[in-house]
Design a protein around this nucleic acid. Structure first.
Lengths: 225, 225, 225, 225
DNA sequence: TATGAATGAGCCTTCATTCAT
DNA sequence: AATGAATGAAGGCTCATTCAT
């Protein structure tokens, strides 16, 4: 083993531990919330010592913040905001992609499945991390949606109806995550269990929202004339 | 003072303590969540002894369950499901009342303002209390909504589109509560601060949803023919 | 047992625990210093639970402050500043009593023997407690000494020679405590082991200091004329 | 670069690290005491690795011992016991030099200013290091003082009055260090801030002590006759 | 009946030390 | 030879719960 691979291995090993901690922390935080989650459990799942969190991240709160950033980053990497929609696509098509992408991120299975729950918790029980999260991640995302809806409604993007409609779209997407236990108890069939389920849900939300906005839009045009 | 009135007074005093505990617990649980809330803080706000919770309710979890029941009961007492809509009202009118009532319960200020937050938490971080809550309180409420929407869509109430549309309606209502900090940061103007704000929000959600369902409905009829 | 004795017993029991904690803490703090002392050890010696300190005193630091106050109070109660010297005694006689009293407090055996060590530590490693201790306890004591020395030197009490001489007196008293291990190693015979040893040491310090001040005083008078 | 100079360089680098560790440790130990000082902080200030202390000194305690030796050596190198007093000087003159030298060491500023504080701590909170320190360093120093005082008092150096007077002299010197926070709070003017202040303090202690011993001496002579 | 002092388990964090590299 | 990531013991503190009164 030469010097370079030697150093690289050290770095990599450190990074591996960090990564394990980040992912274990993601799981535990999303299951139990910030306060209820224990550093012990996180370290245990990461196969590390109790002191590992403090060594690598300083304290529990910093770890949490890193987890949030990491999660958002990974989720957006896997599902870009508009998926593979071309720049030239119609706003209706873009809306469909936006919704499908958002739902995909929210219901993604696999190593990052906790991303959605983490965000939900942050809404109900905001920590210091939320402010920066909203400004750095959520606002840019919202602005894309506002642009799409402004096109559909044929309004300026700052019109209140645009924002309200955007929230109506978003609300339908996050609902199935935020209220999962309730939906599951009332009508389990609607909870998406796989990619197909997500697509079906996305189709409903897209249809519902487009129908609503077409109604709005015609009223708008009526007013304008 | 004779023995009877003495006992009666004791009973009343006991009931008063129970009630104070319930309301203090409502506040604290809604502010901090189940785990983060401390029995000490609850007893302190209720003007009771540290041991009062264990004495009156057995343990913290039982108290929490009682608080949830109490909250839902009081909230529905204040805002009936369809408010004062007559039995003969049109389904559109009923939907409007349903939405206004739900939003009013969610955003109610005053001694029971914690009801909404409590329910939100229960969604994100379900406790054992949720199951019975859904079956006893939420299902009946949902069935009323399904009936209204089935009329509007001209479908049987078991049609999946009815349920999906009902969820689309509900989602818009709870969104502003569940994601309050996010909405507040992105577009504070939409967060209802008073009764008028609630009415405005209810109007938007009603308009949006009715427009959507009219679109659905016309498609339905189109398909049927 | 009637109600009164019932209540009194409760109070007394609480006070007993507090007292045990205070005295155990006195021992442990004086042996190990503030930081090195552990709440666990204190509670163990007091026959109480690990959480007893936090319950009765809030935290370790508050306990420490209470210990310092308690110690000083008890020590002065046992050995008043000038012992039993009458108001009319000569300043030389008063100085002798002052020194004997101070040394007695410093070298007191028994349940409060830790008072002296505690003060020594506070000098080397001051905590937040020192400021108030100096102002509330040590300054009044110093002012008495300044008065006595001013009489002996025939100076106003604010004269720098008075203060300097007072420190020279005090320094000799605390030396045998502060540097005990050093003195014990170099010349064990001077370390007072009992009341008699304290009296002998007090006699030396008094003689030494009076001789010094007589020399000063004659110089003063020489200067004045 | 040949092998020899390579090794020499390695040696030098190693020595430099050792020296940096010793001096950083001196600062940190004197500021925080043995237990409160952390190996991490020491290594950080020395610009060395966390494991450097264990590598170079075995453990924290051994490092501490080395620091004490190093400190005493450097301090005596800078201020010899009797400064530049000639062998033929009068005992009074020698006493003056001894006191000035001791105070200078105690209040020395600069890279070794921690020597005094370190010794003070060692008195209050003795470690294993103290025994050898007393025998190797402090006893020789004391013996010089005893010789001087024996001459002044005209007694054999083993007379108890000699030892007691020597302690009276020493006590006044260390007092302003040991009780610095207390003196500073009661009468800040006496705390020496620079060389001149040290000289003034030395003058007072010398005057006070010589006056005292002159009184003793005359009593002695009286007894002898 | 109702209190509040006391309990003990558990949490986050710190730190000297170790060990693979 | 020297590093720094990792360890595990221990410390202060919190909290739901118990129990004598």
């Amino acid at each position: 083993m030469n010097v370079r691979s030697f150093l690289a291995d050290g770095k990599e090993h450190q990074d591996a531990t960090r990564r394990h901690l980040l992912e274990a922390a993601g799981e535990v935080f999303s299951e139990l919330g910030f306060r209820n989650a224990t550093v012990r459990e996180i370290c245990h799942r990461a196969g590390a010592n109790v002191a590992a969190v403090n060594y690598h991240f300083g304290d529990k709160e910093t770890l949490y913040l890193e987890v949030l950033r990491h999660a958002h980053h990974k989720a957006l990497e896997k599902y870009p905001l508009l998926l593979d929609a071309p720049e030239s696509a119609s706003p209706e098509e873009k809306l469909k992609c936006f919704i499908l992408s958002l739902l995909s991120r929210i219901f993604d299975k696999g190593p990052n499945s906790w991303h959605g729950r983490l965000m939900s918790r942050e809404m109900i029980e905001p920590t210091h991390a939320l402010d920066s999260l909203v400004q750095e991640r959520i606002r840019p995302m919202s602005e894309v949606l506002w642009g799409i809806i402004a096109e559909i409604l044929d309004c300026p993007p700052t019109d209140e109806r645009v924002v309200a409609s955007a929230f109506s779209v978003l609300s339908q997407c996050v609902f199935y995550k935020h209220c999962r236990p309730c939906v599951g108890s009332l009508f389990p069939g609607l909870l998406p269990e796989n990619e197909k389920g997500v697509a079906r849900l996305a189709a409903h939300i897209t249809d519902f929202s487009l129908a609503a906005m077409r109604g709005f839009s015609s009223k708008n045009r009526g007013k304008k004339r």
